[in-house]
Design a protein around this nucleic acid. Sequence first.
RNA 1: GGGCCCGUCGCCUAGCUUGGAUAGGGCGCCGGCCUUCGGAGCCGGAGGUCCCGGGUUCAAGUCCCGGCGGGCCCGCCA
Length: 735
Amino acid sequence: MSEAVADLAPATIGVDRRAVEEAFETGRLKVSRPPSRSIGDYSIALHYLFKLGGVDQKDWPHAAGRLIEALTSSKYKDECYVARAEFVNGYLNLTIDFNRLARVVLDDVLRGGVEERLRSVGGGRVVVVEHTSANPVHPLHVGSGRNSVIGDTFARLLSKLGFRVSRRFYVNDMGRQVAFLVYGVSILKEAGVQPGGEFKTDHWYGIVYALTNLLIEERRLLREVREAEKAYWEALARFVEWAGREGAVPGSALDELRSLLAMRSFNKSAVKVARRLATVLSGLEKALANAAELKALKDSLERYTELSREHAKISFLVRRLAVRAPEVYLALSSRILDDRRALDDVRKLMKRCEEEDPATLSLFHEVSESVVKGFKETLDRLNIHFDAFDWESSKEVLEGAHEVVKIVESKPFARREAGALLVDLDQAAEDCGFVRELFSPDRPGKFIIERSDGTTLYVTRDVSYSVFKFRGTGADVVYNVIASEQSREQKQVKALLYLLGYEREARNLVHFVYELVKLKGMRMSGRRGVYYTLDELVEDYYAVVSKVYYETGKSRALEPAAREDVEKTLRELAVANARGLLLSVEPFKVLTFDPSRLEEALYGSTVLYSYVRLQSILRKLKGLEPLENMERLKAEASSLQWGGYKPSEVEEQILDALAEFERVVLSAYRELKPNKVLEYAMSLSNLVNKFYESHRVMGEPDPEARAFREALVVATLAVMKELVDILGFPHVRRI
RNA sequence: GGGCCCGUCGCCUAGCUUGGAUAGGGCGCCGGCCUUCGGAGCCGGAGGUCCCGGGUUCAAGUCCCGGCGGGCCCGCCA
């Protein structure tokens, strides 16, 4: 179309051909959608052309008339399937001959043209997608679930585009978090408490991890509360003494303060006294405005109140978990008595781990592996699979990390500070544009890659792992699906790679940023054992989907034998809905949702239901199982003829949508927005539902209409199948 | 203090890269249809200062500048 305008504009509007082409290339001119279908199918805003050609506004209609005249009498009328062209205040509106367009669009899908073009994008090149990579200390929650779904969908998209995709999970089995878990586990081992029990392994470890953290924190707070309590009694005693001496406080208030102070011997009433005291003191506020004595008492009172409130909160969380796993609680709470000693033990563990002590490493590895086993079950259920789990504690990564240190040591941008090896990127940036631009407009800053005790840090190991991801797999591009909070670390890795001479790798390491998940009415924290797990999400969706299913009354004809199939299908719908929800928002936007309102986000159901409808049409029409016979269906459909059949409005919209498929997939890939595929699948599904409501295929008397619809349904199903593949939804056949 | 990201009906979201007409869709709400090619469907309705203020332009949700609000990051943590 743009070519047609470029060709015809010189003679009709008086604009140079080259200028028009340029306008299309730069986007000053473009073919777009008019606001309403009744206006036309496509439109081009000609204002810019008129301006270029110096056409006065009152002459617009004439010039446009000449353009339309030329357009409709040229070869372009046919080539662009123009049925009608009109000019309305500045816009050239085009109506498309869908009968002719249909042939092209449908054949493109049915004969595999679209598929082939998409596959040629990757052309067999290897890419790595690292995703999920959650710390193996508690089950995957919906936050990590978002990472998994985005990562897996993107990986599926890449493989549709002809890339050879290696999906990798980086297991962070070193470091503080795992050390806490290992500490808890070792206590339980001594106490003879077995892992798992009635819990899924990762859920059990999650409780152990949280309880270990919480108990240590609780002991610390208890200690601090006691100190604060002592301090405030003393402050009160001093205040009373002072007030009595100075007579600064009315007698009645002083009496009350004295009686409160007397309560000290009844140890337990400290909280009540504090509350009462606060009221009495606020009554004295005016009279004693700036007295230092009052302020001192108030401060110590405040500190006590705050600490005891915090302590109560932690105790509540401890009790919550204690009820769920009593034997774990009993064992841990009887052994974790002093927070300082416990922390010291954890530190020792961590140190031994970082020093790469074999026995400690294997203990860490063993615990992580159990948790990862739970991850795998969760992810398998969601159709998410990996080509490899790469361990941070592996020889490759650790040796590589030491190698990195050794090389960096001799570089001018590195120096020792108090024994630790520091990388000064500010300095490196001075003569490295890559690093400068990477952080711009921020300053690159500095960071440590080796502690003074000779152990490496997370970033160091990540650099080593990045090298492995490229060199070990032969990848051209590596995508790291990692939360936005790690942006800085990711830049540091890229910068260091570049500075170490891995320039290609640095340029082709893509941080695929996604934002966190927030729940209405819950602040998730793995350390405190407060989270909404991915397993629960699927379970909750299962409940929602079952409710909808059984409420429609469809179940009444259900025979016992069919029951199992139904359960399976409902599970599949639950999976699709969970994936749909987590994919529904653009990756770099915070995803907020309310777990009690899952029934409002049924993307999976909507898409799969339309998918099933298309299948059922063809199953009935052709007497075969559609998904198993796609090639045959496509071949047959591509030879169908429908003469001059004029598609209905809905049919036109479906054709439009099918023609969009390729563009959508490509932009989802280029813009790192796999959610676009879901968005598109939803709109196609809605169109399918409309079509299904008002059009017959089998019952259609007109053979041309029937032929057209068969071809349309087959092509739509073919596209839907691709979509369901990319989205990782189960290929449901019946609901 | 500095940097990054986000702000569109009650809620969620598309459109912003490349400016173009009446800002598209979903949930929920209200009112009507649906028993089919296997019942999560269809039609209609209400609901919008596109965060605010300037600027550029024939034209701004879109571009530029300045604010405001929310999230995140600036460790010998991971």
